[in-house]
Every structure is written in C-alpha cells, then in structure tokens.
Amino acid sequence: MVTKEDIIKLAKLGKLYLTEEELDSAVKDMTNIIGFANEISKVDTGDTEFDNINGLENALREDIVEESFDEDLILKNVDGGKDGFFYIKKYQN
C-alpha cells in the first residue's frame, strides 16, 4: 500500500509539485504498480549478481587534455547566459 505521505515524499525527492488530483491518482497508480512489482519480492534469487550486460571492465581514458568548448556554445541554450555564467534570477514575477 502506498500512502499519500509516501507520494508527497517521493514528489519532493523528484522535485515535482503535484496537484491534489494528481496526488490522488498517483496514490492509486503507484499502489497498482507496486502491487505488480511485488510479484518479484517473493522470488528467491540466490546469489545471482548483475553488474553490467557484457561484463565489461576498465573502460578508461588517458589523462590528455582536449580543448574545451567555446563559452558561447556552452551558454547557447540559455541565450548566452549572463557575464559568462548560467544565471538564475532570485525570483520572477
């Protein structure tokens, strides 16, 4: 059973605001989904471990500098930012 308090906590962690309506339907949906996920909780999995699909190891890079991107490209998706920075105004009315 998933409670409203659970959802509020999850929404806070996920940085989401939910309306009352959304909250109610989330409680219902999550209860269903978790019920469905619970199917696996009874299964005995023994010591089977999983790390990564192809068992790859040590994908490492040499410590060699490559030129960074131009600042105007870095800031391209925020209209150039402000004074070279990403910028967040204190509040916006």
């Binding site: 998933v2 659970d6 959802i7 906590k9 999850l10 929404a11 962690l13 996920g14 989401l16 939910l18 959304e22 989330a26 949906d29 999550m30 989904i33 978790i34 996920a37 696996i40 909780s41 299964v43 999995t45 023994g46 089977t48 471990e49 999983f50």
Partner: peptide
C-alpha cells in the same frame, strides 16, 4: 512524472533492497 515517482520509490531508502536490488538480482 509517474515513472519518476516509481523510480524514486524503488531506489529510496527502505525500499531499495526489496525492489531495485531484487530486480537486479533477477536480471
């Protein structure tokens, strides 16, 4: 949003072992 909530749930403390870890083992 639904999936963010679900994903957050299965990773959050107290539920990780029952869901995420179990799922990884089953994987």
């Amino acid at each position: 949003k639904r999936r963010i909530l679900l994903g957050t749930y299965v990773l959050s403390s107290g539920y990780y072992d029952a869901y995420y870890k179990k799922a990884q083992n089953l994987r």
